[in-house]
């Protein structure tokens, strides 16, 4: 029999192990999410991240080694961003019909998301790297990571902040919008998609079909708008 240390040294050099681990961890997280009736707090990505982080810690593996395997999954962020254009295209007609409220709400939601997070973080004296990582937090993860990279932020911090934003937005949306007496499903969905991207969109679809469609539109439009306003907004706080 071969020495287990030799097998381990093979595994730790090849991408196979951590690619497989990433998929299994996500699978476990997704199963947990379904078991919990798709409650926002049981987010599959959050669960997968915790599982993998523990695994790396136990085996003493560096993030760099891990990433050599996981990069194949990470690469898919780019094509996934392009694919987000499809739901946007599918909803172009609905978009045109409510063009004015949509544009106004997009500007309001997107600017508030970027400016308020920067203002609060700046008031607490957080570092410039953290500011740049926080700025795109309401944008869908693939785009947010791209924006953070461009701004000199830390993409891995952004990834976690995006997740937290989505989970928090999904949890707070219904009570908040009820308190504000917003009854229009388009307004409820759209604002959630703009502020809390895909996780918010998934939540909107659970509540109402129209809200879900408009959340998807909000997420897509905000991805484009935030990539333009985040660099300008960050400039104000530097």
């Amino acid at each position: 029999m071969t020495d287990p240390a030799l097998i381990w040294s093979y595994l730790s050099r090849e991408p196979l192990l951590w690619l497989t681990a990433t998929l299994i961890a996500y699978w476990l997280g997704d199963t947990f999410f379904r078991r919990m009736n798709r409650q926002s707090w049981a987010n599959p990505v959050l669960a997968a991240v915790v599982i993998l982080a523990l695994l790396l810690w136990i085996t003493g593996t560096s993030y760099q080694t891990y990433f050599e395997g996981a990069q194949f999954v990470h690469f898919m962020l780019g094509p996934a961003t392009v694919a987000l254009g499809m739901p946007l295209y599918d909803n172009l007609r609905r978009l045109r019909r409510a063009a004015l409220p949509l544009i106004a709400a997009l500007l309001a939601g997107s600017l508030t998301a970027v400016l308020s997070v920067l203002a609060i973080a700046h008031a607490f004296g957080l570092s410039e790297v953290l500011l740049a990582s926080l700025a795109p937090k309401s944008t869908t993860a693939p785009v947010a990571i791209g924006i953070a990279e461009g701004l000199g932020g830390e993409p891995t911090i952004t990834a976690v902040l995006v997740l937290l934003t989505g989970v928090f937005g999904a949890i707070i949306a219904t009570p908040l919008l009820n308190a504000l007496r917003i009854r229009d499903w388009r307004a409820r969905g759209f604002s959630l998609g703009v502020a809390a991207h895909g996780i918010g969109t998934a939540r909107a679809f659970q509540v109402n079909e129209t809200a879900g469609a408009f959340a998807g539109i909000g997420m897509g439009l905000n991805a484009v708008l935030t990539s333009i306003i985040a660099p300008l907004a960050l400039h104000l706080f530097q």
């Binding site: 309001a108 939601g109 937090k137 707070i172 908040l176 504000l180 307004a187 959630l192 809390a196």
Partner: peptide, 23 residues
């Protein structure tokens, strides 16, 4: 604490601003 506050307050404000302006 600062990061959590920034993320949570900003997300709530953005949802409220978007929905109210739409309405």
């Amino acid at each position: 604490l600062a990061i959590a506050l920034a993320v949570m307050v900003s997300t709530a404000l953005a949802i409220a601003a978007g929905a109210l302006v739409f309405k």
